[in-house]
Amino acid sequence: MRNFNELTEPEILALAISLEEEDERIFADFAHGLRESFPGSAAVFEQMRTEESSHRRRLQNLYQQKFGEHIPLIRRQDVKGFVERRPVWLRRPLSLKAARSAASSIEQETGQFYERAAARTSDASIRRLLDDLAQEERSHQNKAEELTESARGKGAGGREKEAQRKLFLLQIVQPGLAGLMDGSVSTLAPVFAAAFATHSTHAAFLVGLAAS
C-alpha cells in the first residue's frame, strides 16, 4: 500500500480514473436497486452515474495524451487514507436513506481527493482538470438535491414517501408482529415499529394493546 504523497502524476490520474469508474458503478447499482420503489430518486442516481462517466472519460483522454495508451489499475485500497466502503450488494434491501447518505459521502471524499491531487500536480493541464473536477464534485450534493426535486415532482414525491412507508411496514413491522406471534421477539418491538412508521401515539397504543 502506498502513501498518497508518494504517487506520481501518472499514478494520480490512474487512481482518479479508477475512483470515477467505481463511483459510476455504485450509482448505477443505486439506480437499479431503487428503480421499482423509488423511480424518481433512481433517475437522480442515473444522472449522477452519467456525470461520473463523463469525468472518467475526461481523465482517460488526458492520461493518454500525456502518458500513452496503457493506464495501470490503481485502486483506492492500494493507497492509504481512503474510507472503507460497504459493498452495495450487501445493502439488501437497499433503502433510499442509505443510498443518499452513501452518495453524499462518496461525493465529499472524491472532492477532497481532487483538491489534494491538484495541490500536488505541477503540470498545468492536469492541475486544471483536477481543479475543475473538484469544483464539480463539490457541487454534486446540491445538484443531486435539485435533481431529486425536479425528477420526483410533487406527485412522485408523495408516491415515493408512500412506497417507503409500505416497505417499512413489510420489512420491519410485519416481521416484528410475526416474531411476536411465535415468541421470538419482545412485545415492545411492534410498539416501537408502529410508532416509528405512523408517528401516531394512538396507533402505537393500539398495537401495544394487541401485543399484551
Score class of each variant (00 low, 15 high):
residue 119 A to F: 05
residue 179 G to W: 09
residue 79 V to W: 08
residue 94 L to Y: 09
residue 22 E to V: 03
residue 34 L to A: 10
residue 8 T to F: 01
residue 155 G to Q: 12
residue 144 A to M: 14
residue 58 R to S: 15
residue 10 P to R: 00
residue 58 R to M: 15
residue 180 L to D: 00
residue 28 A to D: 10
residue 109 E to M: 06
residue 132 D to Y: 05
residue 97 K to Q: 15
residue 91 R to L: 15
residue 166 K to L: 15
residue 195 A to V: 06
residue 99 A to Q: 03
residue 76 R to A: 15
residue 179 G to D: 10
residue 40 G to Q: 02
residue 62 L to I: 10
residue 50 T to I: 06
residue 139 S to C: 09
residue 183 G to F: 06
residue 17 I to S: 02
residue 157 G to E: 10
residue 187 T to S: 14
residue 191 V to N: 02
residue 113 F to N: 10
residue 172 I to C: 11
residue 181 M to T: 10
residue 6 E to F: 01
residue 135 Q to I: 06
residue 92 R to D: 13
residue 189 A to E: 14
residue 79 V to Q: 08
residue 194 A to F: 04
residue 9 E to T: 13
residue 48 M to F: 05
residue 11 E to N: 02
residue 174 Q to Y: 08
residue 69 E to A: 12
residue 212 S to G: 15
residue 197 A to T: 03
residue 130 L to F: 15
residue 19 L to H: 01
residue 197 A to V: 00
residue 61 N to L: 13
residue 180 L to A: 08
residue 100 R to D: 11
residue 146 E to S: 10
residue 15 L to G: 00
residue 207 V to H: 00
residue 80 K to H: 04
residue 206 L to D: 04
residue 103 A to C: 09
residue 126 I to G: 06
residue 25 R to T: 00
residue 21 E to T: 05
residue 160 E to H: 04
residue 66 K to A: 06
residue 81 G to R: 07
residue 118 A to R: 08
residue 64 Q to M: 10
residue 200 S to Q: 06
residue 43 A to C: 02
residue 148 T to G: 12
residue 76 R to C: 06
residue 4 F to E: 08
residue 22 E to L: 04
residue 170 L to P: 02
residue 11 E to Y: 07
residue 81 G to I: 00
residue 109 E to F: 07
residue 189 A to K: 05
residue 105 S to K: 05
residue 138 R to W: 14
residue 195 A to E: 09
residue 113 F to M: 10
residue 202 H to V: 11
residue 192 F to H: 12
residue 184 S to Y: 05
residue 197 A to F: 07
residue 106 I to S: 14
residue 67 F to T: 09
residue 88 V to I: 12
residue 83 V to H: 09
residue 39 P to R: 07
residue 48 M to L: 15
residue 9 E to G: 04
residue 35 R to C: 07
residue 63 Y to I: 02
residue 202 H to G: 07
residue 122 S to R: 14
residue 164 Q to K: 13
residue 30 F to A: 13
residue 203 A to S: 13
residue 196 F to A: 15
residue 35 R to M: 13
residue 61 N to T: 13
residue 72 P to L: 01
residue 140 H to C: 03
residue 48 M to C: 10
residue 7 L to Q: 02
residue 37 S to P: 03
residue 35 R to P: 01
residue 14 A to Y: 07
residue 140 H to T: 08
residue 110 T to H: 06
residue 1 M to A: 02
residue 202 H to S: 14
residue 137 E to Y: 03
residue 43 A to Q: 11
residue 126 I to Q: 12
residue 18 S to D: 13
residue 36 E to D: 15
residue 42 A to D: 04
residue 182 D to W: 03
residue 133 L to T: 08
residue 123 D to W: 00
residue 140 H to R: 02
residue 14 A to F: 06
residue 171 Q to N: 14
residue 102 A to H: 04
residue 101 S to Q: 11
residue 48 M to Y: 01
residue 23 D to Y: 05
residue 135 Q to S: 14
residue 73 L to G: 01
residue 179 G to A: 09
residue 87 P to S: 00
residue 126 I to P: 13
residue 211 A to R: 08
residue 146 E to W: 03
residue 11 E to L: 05
residue 20 E to W: 03
